[in-house]
Structures are given as C-alpha cells and as structure tokens.
Simulated assay, not measured.
Amino acid sequence: MPLDPQFRSVIDQATAAGALPLVQATAQETRSHYRSLAVSRRGADFVPEPVAKVVDDAVDGPAGPVPVRVYTPTGDRGRVITYLHGGGWVVGDLDTHDPVCRRVANAVGATVVAVDYRLAPEHPYPAPLDDAMAALAWTADRYPGLPHVVAGDSAGASLAAGAALRARDGNGPALAAQLLVYPATDPSMSTPSMRDNGEGYFLTRADMAWFYDQYLPDRARRGEPHVDLLHAPDLAGLPPAVVATAEFDPLRDEGDAYAQRLRAAGVAVRHVPGPGLIHGYFAFLGVVAEADARSREVLAALDDLLP
C-alpha cells in the first residue's frame, strides 16, 4: 500500500515546521522536543479517553522509587498489564503515553500499570530493564491471580520482550501474554526495512543509531539476548505474543522476523501488520483514522489471547 495520506500530511507538516528529525543535539533537548511533539499531535480539541480512575504511585526499584501510573478501565474484566513506553530508551514518560495507556486499559478491560523507568544515557542498559522487572513484580504482587501481560511500544516493546525472557527464566512473575508494538529487536540495524524506510518516515535510521549509542554505549553488550532479541538462542516457553508492525517503519522487518522466530519456537503468536502506517502510529489515536482502526485490531488480538 502507499503511505496513508493522513500520515503523509503529518510528515510533510512536521518537516515544514522543522519538527523533524526527532533527535536533537542532546538527550535533554530531545526529551523536550519529543514531549512537545506528543502534546501537539493531540490537537487543540483533544479530550483524554475516559477511564474509571487514574492514580500515581511508585515502585521500589533497584536504585530507588520508580514512578508508575495506574489506570482502572471503565469495564474491568479482571486483567492487568504492565506497560513500558517507547522513546528509544532515552525519551518518553507517563504523560507522553497517557492516551495510549487509556486506550489499552479500556480496549482490553485491564488495569494498566504504566512505568516511568530510568532513561539513558544517564542510566544505560540494563537499568531500564531492571526497573521494568521491578514493576512487573510490583504489579504481580498488587494484583495476584489476574492474567498479567507485559506490554510496550518501540523501545518499550524491546524492554517488554526482554522482561518476558527474564521472567521465563525464573527472574520474574508468570505472564499470560506479551504485547509488542513495533519492537526493536536487532541492534545491528541490518534489515532491508532499516535501509528502505530509514529516511522520510518520521523515525529514521540515524535516530535509531543515536538511541542505541545512548542505551548501549558498551557495544560488547549489544549481543546479549535481552537486547539482541532477534538472535536470542532460545525463545521456547515464552508467553503468547501479539506483535504489531508498520509498513513504513525502519523496524518493520525485525518485528516481522521476531514474530516468526517466536512462532518457530512454539509460541502462540498473533502478528498484526500495519499497511500504510509509520512507526509510532499508536501515538496518533483519534488523529489518523487508520492508526486508530489498526490499534483497535491489535488490542482485539490481545483480548482474544486472554481468559
């Protein structure tokens, strides 16, 4: 399919306004820029999707308190999700992903625990993953007996996949499923889509290279299975997965390939491609019609996996 015309307009407007590239001179400037983009894309008439309750709390993390935000859905069906936001392990927070967490909570009928994990470069790998594991344990303790999903988008999906591996190996709670929305799984950045979609579609190859340099300055660690997920030696026994990808995303092929590797390892997988869509489309809920529709399809696939 061609690029969705609404996304074509979004990219053209952002380019004309000087809002791209995503990465600015420093991590702090990039964070500020990303927050501005997150707010501006919601539009002047934006109204948050209603949920039953939102409460800020904190998890006892390995290096101190980790802020979390707990969303109670309007129709609770007895599930819980630990959600890890995207942003290249460098940017993003509870506010940038607030609309996404509201949609996830209501669509799946699940309490969502959104995690404000530590960010690189101040806190490189494995600090964000360690915080994610602390949040998983906290969620499991707070909501015992409920089907528990680890979820995330982009870098957050990479953390979710890494957390699922750790949990499987006895270092975390039992998980009912994993939701991986356009995950980063290949630090080598060597797939065809990284080349073909590496310019002109919001997230660029240069952005990803910079993000990896912040998160994994020690290049020797880029081959560890919780990072180089696409080449992790053993994926058997992982929880069922929903993997969503986008056609014009540099990360498309590594997400597709990870879904295939999970399936080959005997993991139940629902793979939801995104024809005509770009990386980050979950952030355009209520703004781009096809992003809104595909997000509901992705969350319906997760709903189907859960009791």
Rank of each mutant, 00 (worst) to 15 (best):
V149A: 12
S188E: 14
T185K: 03
L146T: 06
V149I: 08
V149F: 10
D207R: 08
D256C: 06
F202G: 01
F248S: 03
R205P: 06
A135V: 12
A220R: 13
P126W: 12
N171A: 15
R252N: 12
R219W: 03
A244R: 01
W138N: 01
D218F: 08
L203M: 14
D207L: 11
V181F: 10
D186R: 14
Q214F: 00
A244S: 11
P147L: 04
D196Q: 13
D249L: 02
D228A: 15
L238H: 03
W138T: 00
L136A: 11
L129K: 02
A137R: 15
V149K: 11
A241M: 07
P126E: 12
A132C: 14
G172R: 12
A246Y: 04
R221Q: 15
G170E: 03
M208S: 14
L165N: 05
E224R: 08
D249F: 02
R222N: 06
E254W: 07
L179W: 03
M194D: 00
D256T: 12
G237Y: 09
Q214P: 00
L179T: 03
M189L: 15
D249V: 01
D253P: 04
N171T: 01
L230A: 03
D228N: 15
L129W: 10
D234Y: 05
P233V: 07
A161Y: 04
T204R: 07
Y215S: 04
A135S: 14
A177P: 12
G255D: 14
M133K: 00
D207Y: 10
W138L: 02
M194C: 03
G170Y: 04
A246G: 03
Y215L: 08
P225T: 00
